[in-house]
Design a protein around this nucleic acid. Sequence first.
DNA 1: ATGCTATGTAGGAATCATTCCTAGGTAGGG
DNA 2: CCCTACCTAGGAATGATTCCTACATAGCAT
Lengths: 146, 146
Amino acid sequence: MRLNHAELLTRFRRHAVRLTRQRAAIYTALAETTSHPTADDLYQTVKRQHPMMSRNTVYYTLGVLQQAGLVQEVNVGHEVARFDGNVTVHHHLICLGCRQIVDVMDEGLNQLAVSNGQARGFRILGHRVEFHGYCAGCQRGKLDVP
Amino acid sequence: MRLNHAELLTRFRRHAVRLTRQRAAIYTALAETTSHPTADDLYQTVKRQHPMMSRNTVYYTLGVLQQAGLVQEVNVGHEVARFDGNVTVHHHLICLGCRQIVDVMDEGLNQLAVSNGQARGFRILGHRVEFHGYCAGCQRGKLDVP
DNA sequence: ATGCTATGTAGGAATCATTCCTAGGTAGGG
DNA sequence: CCCTACCTAGGAATGATTCCTACATAGCAT
């Protein structure tokens, strides 16, 4: 996905987020990958073009973008936070070997509900599904899949 | 669920885990609640009966019990790790207000699959579903549910 | 265009859950 | 009942994330 400055400005305005060079760089780096990078991955990437970029700015910006709904946090278990520029409703496949995260777009998974008997008075606003397994590469390397 | 020493011994033997006073206390505290406590919650609980208990022992023990399959880690987003003594397959309801976690036992949710088109060569071993919303109490307190 | 001001940024210090290290202690097989 | 492999306590270390603060700048109003 190529992102020019006009499109960037449109998106940021739509979500009422002020656009700065740093934010443009961080958001673009995230939106142009499907690899669900960590804050530090993004920092390393963005630092190539912006050597003065602070790690703090990356964290702060990710927080702002997340609250604005331009970015989503994906967490695998208890590991380092990872981020996703795809904010459409979708779910994830997680490789237990190499820890890669792959998007799953499946309308069926978006329709899950909890039976009233189990809902215990909760008002449910959304859900998240993660599938755990081994990717093709890790199956080859490691046939003693537990 | 009342756990006597004989039952405890049986479970630990079945999973080849050495039984110590500390482990008995930690596992019992966890098995007798449905509140998904943090490591520190368990430490605070267990310390009442075992004032010499080290926080380190709680972490180490939870690791051992988890690897043995006597205990499960539940993670809500990027927060502190929480633990679950219920190791049957089940899913969770998470309150965005008070952060409580409630178990959902629903056979339908245990049957989810990813279509081959989306599976991208993954060998899938399991999945986890978390529903996000507001519990009955938090709906009353906070009607500006986002 | 230019100036103003609320907001963002850089950098370093602080936090805090978790892990690492190590010297005693103990479960439980023989 | 004795060994020894495995545990435990306590303190130090780690590392992702957050906090603090002085300087910079986006973008509205003039």
